[in-house]
């Protein structure tokens, strides 16, 4: 199947729009189309409260978080020339998770924005380490090795936090946070995701074309005028910002960053530069649908978003991997 990038972008945007509207109507308080229309024009009504105060920010946060993960995944895969790369590969998500769990252990979870702030600080710390490293060793293999090391270290430290946490309640709180959610998110969260997406889109427009030349290897890219150190630094910064913000806003949401670019490739777009925006839209749609399911599927306890994305994402990814493997065999 082959579709043009613009057709795909439009199609995915329309699908997101339709899903956002549909999901605004559904929920514990079902709204008719009429009531929804009423809510749009009468602020202050109960319907308006549900639509403007709860469902729309939640839906848009889901789209924003998914888009950040999809975009981050596409950038990472393009830079590292590796279809297995994902936003968490370099340890930024793990750093954000570690810092957030420390905030929760110290009982700061109840103060607004503190956990988010800690998560961003953790992501920034890891990103700075990566940047310092890239300046000295710009080779991608070195970057992957350092990232995997940092990720493992943050994971180990997080296990230590669990180990030493004062009470099972705190442990449960951290665990629940790491499973990811966009429940009760506000317009502030929507703004945060929009900020990340706008900044990184601008960076990508500016430098992302280098990813195309990088398809043929670092030497070819450099011979074609690409400043590899600058490209690597820009993408590390951009992808870290997206991954860090995503964790800060919604906790850990697995597989979206890995699977989105693959989904777009399966639709025929292989160019790592043109892949960036459709991957973002696909990620947004995926998390939006997953969050809709979390909200609407009756479950005894609350089903967590991060759990569901991994549950859907992993088999989907396996199918895509199988299809790619089969097409390589045929050719």
């Amino acid at each position: 199947m082959h579709v043009s990038t613009s057709t795909l972008n439009i199609g995915l945007s329309v699908a997101i729009g339709v899903m956002v509207v549909t999901l605004m109507l559904l929920g514990d308080v079902p709204l008719s189309l009429h009531a929804w229309g009423d809510a749009l024009v009468h602020p202050g009504s109960l319907g308006a409260e549900v639509v403007w105060g709860i469902r729309l920010p939640r839906n848009l946060t889901a789209v924003g978080v998914g888009a950040m993960l999809g975009m981050s995944g596409a950038l990472m895969q393009g830079l590292l020339r590796n279809p297995l790369a994902e936003p968490g590969l370099l340890g930024v998500s793990a750093g954000a998770g570690l810092a957030a769990s420390i905030a929760i252990v110290f009982g700061l979870g109840l103060i607004p924005f503190v956990v988010e702030g800690f998560a961003m600080a953790g992501a920034t710390g890891v990103a700075l380490l990566l940047l310092l490293f890239v300046q000295r060793f710009p080779q991608r293999q070195a970057l992957i090795l350092l990232g995997v090391g940092l990720s493992a270290l943050c994971g180990a430290l997080m296990a230590l936090v669990f180990n030493l946490s004062p009470s099972p309640v705190t442990t449960a709180e951290i665990l629940s946070w790491t499973m990811g959610s966009v429940q009760n998110r506000s317009w502030f969260d929507v703004l945060l995701t929009a900020f990340g997406l706008v900044v990184v889109s601008a960076l990508s427009l500016h430098l992302g074309r280098g990813l195309r030349f990088l398809t043929l290897g670092e030497e070819t890219a450099r011979s074609m005028g690409v400043d590899m150190t600058r490209l690597t630094q820009t993408i590390v910064v951009g992808s870290s910002l997206l991954a860090g913000l995503a964790v800060a806003v919604a906790g850990v949401i697995g597989f979206v960053g890995l699977a989105s670019p693959h989904l777009i490739r399966a639709l025929g777009i292989k160019d790592p530069y043109r892949l960036i925006w459709p991957s973002a839209l696909a990620g947004g749609l995926m998390v939006l649908i997953a969050d809709g399911c979390v909200r609407l599927i009756p479950a005894s306890g609350e089903l967590r978003l991060g759990v569901l994305t991994s549950l859907i994402g992993a088999p989907l990814f396996a199918v895509l991997a199988y299809r790619s493997a089969r097409s390589w065999m045929q050719d």
């Binding site: 020339r81 590796n82 990088l214 398809t215 043929l216 290897g217 030497e219 070819t220 011979s223 490739r265 292989k270 160019d271 790592p272």
Partner: peptide, 11 residues
């Protein structure tokens, strides 16, 4: 410049 490395990352 054509390098000796002939790998192509994406299809």
């Amino acid at each position: 410049y054509l390098p000796q490395e002939r790998s192509i990352a994406w299809d």
